[in-house]
Design a protein around this nucleic acid. Sequence first.
DNA 1: TGGAGCGTAATTTTT
DNA 2: TTACGCTCCA
Length: 776
Amino acid sequence: MPTLDPRLSTTLVDLNEPQRRAVTHRDGPLLVLAGPGSGKTRVITRRAAYLVQTGVPPHNVLAITFTNKAADEMRRRIDALGVSRGMWVHTFHALGVRLLREFGPLARVQAGFSIYDEADQLRVVKEAMALCGVNESLVRPEAAQSAIGAAKNRLESPAEYVERAEFFDTQVIARVYEAYEQLLEQRNAVDFDDLLMRVALVLRAHPEIVERLNIRFRYVLIDEYQDTNHAQYVIAHYLAQHHRNICATGDPDQSIYAWRGADLNNILDFERDYPDAVVVRLEQNYRSTGRILQVASALIAGNRRRKHKDLWTENAAGEPAEVWRFSEGQAEAEEIGGTIVRLHAAGRPYSDVAVFYRVNALSRGLEEALRARGIPYKIARGVAFYNRKEIRDTLAYLRVSVNPADEVALRRIINTPPRGIGSATVGRLLAAAERSRRPLLEVLRDPIEQAALKTAGKKVRAFVELLDRIQAATTGTVAQAVSATLTLSGLEAALEKERDDGGEDRLANVRELVTAAQRYDQEAEAPSLADFLNRVALVSDQDAVDESAGVVMLMTLHAAKGLEFPIVFIVGLEQGLLPHENALRERGDIEEERRLCFVGITRARERIILSHAAQRVIRGVPTPRAPSQFLRELDPAATVVHSFERALADGRVLGAASNRVRAEAPDADGFVPLDDHLPPEESRRRSRRKTRWSRDEFADREDLEIIAAAAEVGAASSPYGAWKPGTFVRHDVYGVGQVVWIRPGGGQTRAAIQFAGCGEKTFILELAPIQKLERR
DNA sequence: TGGAGCGTAATTTTT
DNA sequence: TTACGCTCCA
């Protein structure tokens, strides 16, 4: 019996009963179902501390999260409890990198491997398609990319994928997948999915490695278990195989990554996988007011695939949730901006406020409104920095010097900045590489090839010499390597010139990269250029959320998970946006959209405002919008509706259906004429009044449906009413085809057309050069 | 070779 | 609205 750690009482203090049970559970599988705001992070960190304080060496504990930010946060909090030394706290992907570094050869990767992000990956997919002779109009490269990613999540090799491929296009993709894998191998590169897949496959094939890892990691904690995909599930399974000390925490109601392969069944079936599992439910919420919780609970009750929880709180009931309705999307942004100004004037720090949206495109209007009012804000977009051209260019140089086989990076920098090696020369070199089956860089170095190129050959030689000089300069600290690369490559000079010519100051951005490298040099345990590059590759948007920045935060609903703010706005609660159009389609998942909305609402501590507009400018086109079906699913007893609609010049009121007495026929534009017997002033006054939704009123209130109907009529009255599946059409480029399906929505009409020569393609009819063929 | 200019297509969420 | 790819011209 180990002596009890004196710190143990601190570890267990201020925990409620279920929390304490979860923290002090020692051996065997444990499932913690943690509702929003129920102190889940606290439980995980305390549990890690508890294990250590009761005698488990820290290096025997492995904690896995999904985001770097969560990992850092957990490490920090465990640190604060004084026990983190030697403990492994990683994201699944970072764990993948570390393990691949250890047993890489078993997974067909060599030291210094590159990690390809989505953009790199797409390049390789395109290359693979070209290699297979697959035309990009036959299979969209993005489609192939996501099919390959999905296959990897299922741990399917190209050969296994082929077996399942029934249809022509999947057979094509199977060939592309195979070529893609070969290209990655030649380049000593892995993509994001490989970081999981290859680890999972190694574990499956090598019991001795599993054994070794099981000895090393006696306790495994996995956070956000509801977001694990099949590959992650398999990894978790093997990591806990012998000792079965797996602690999974999560909440099925907050699973929002099914589109990326997350399998809700992993958490729903945990008790089947581990029949002896102890299950702890954390249902007491410490975050939100009673009404916020009430509204959220009513909403999520609409889902079938879940584990029931009774969320409750001792917090005050608070204010009702608010639904704000606008006639136009811009008014929504303006009103939110104005409200934030007033809140701030009343003493609220900006950081008390966050605005969430379903799609990034919605941030623009908000940004403009905030900027116009001088409200400081930040958008949670971590990758934005690393996606800048100048940053990617710099990193490409570094990648080549760590991994000379990295052809994607090599091709990126071969003529950046311009050095007279144009596409014709590159084309010749690539052909030579393919002919002689040698890596591109080897061909570049070949004096014979250089000579064959005549004048360009000299430039190629200068380029490889440059690469050698850069490689020689990358031996010191990472920061030194980065700045030497900038100077030697000529990037610095090029950017300087661009700035002096009055262009953007992109030099400042690459200087920031040097700063980031300096920070890394100081913080990393064993800094190396390769590790720095790996780390940079795994940066995500979520990591950029800085709640302590003192500014209003703007982010997608996905990025909002795990955060909390006193005042939360969720904008664009409209059909097609939330739930998103894709989810409304045949195989879409409405429940996931509902969870997304649930996640958003439960971020709020004091006040939640859900807004929608009857019309919104999308891609420059004013589009009628119907309110989200989720608005109808909120608990009306805890909800209040506030209309900000305004009459138009001609007296019509967009979206002000709340003033209606009975439904009227929509006019030709698809808008319901409202209150046109009232003078505009009266109409405006009425539409501004605050309405409280009583249950009855809510029940037979038609307004939402009416607006929805108006939107639909708007779409149906489009010139494509007569287009049906089977209708023959002619496209200026693809020729004659036949409509497969047609769907109005969001002011645009989408249709899939099957063409004789080149397969099925989807169009926005309003924009595509396409006509109906008339029967004659 | 490389830049400018044009047309076309696309837009969900991200480790 | 923007991004990308393609063609054309200096």
